[in-house]
Design a protein around this nucleic acid. Structure first.
Length: 119
DNA sequence: AGTATGACGTTTT
DNA sequence: AAAAACGCCATAC
């Protein structure tokens, strides 16, 4: 049983707001994973919700949605226009992405170590 | 209310 | 290494 607190979702809720803030902080040329953002926002198990927030609110809040990828260093979109667009945007920012959408997290993962000591 | 789906992640084959 | 099986949680229908 998860000892974790259960919380809400809507656009106004703290978790959503926190997710948006963290995503907005990802520097150009770096990437973060869904799970990483969920963790930073206080919900370690909320990776799927992060993807939902990106899908539904990235335009409205002008989020750098292209900088959020899967935990294995892979673009998580199904093959298609979105996938190609994300790959293009990341390459344009200086991130090396191979044709299958793989990114070397050792190099490009955004690390908050030292910058945000409180988490 | 119950089921299927998803821009996920971890564990097991 | 790669794919499938699970677990998770919010949405869409």
């Amino acid at each position: 049983m998860p000892p974790w607190p259960r919380s809400t979702k809507t656009a106004a809720d703290p978790f959503c707001a926190s997710v948006r803030e963290w995503i907005a902080l990802i520097p150009v040329g770096k990437v973060a994973t869904y799970g990483q953002i969920a963790h930073l926002a206080g919900k370690p198990w909320g990776a799927r919700q992060v993807s939902w927030i990106l899908h539904s609110q990235s335009v409205k809040y002008q989020l750098p949605w292209q900088r959020v990828i899967g935990a294995k260093g892979r673009i998580s979109l199904p093959p298609g226009n979105g996938f190609v667009e994300q790959r293009r945007l990341l390459r344009h920012e200086g991130v090396k992405v191979d044709d299958r959408g793989r990114i070397d997290l050792k190099i490009y993962r955004w690390s908050t170590e030292g910058e945000f000591p409180a988490r």
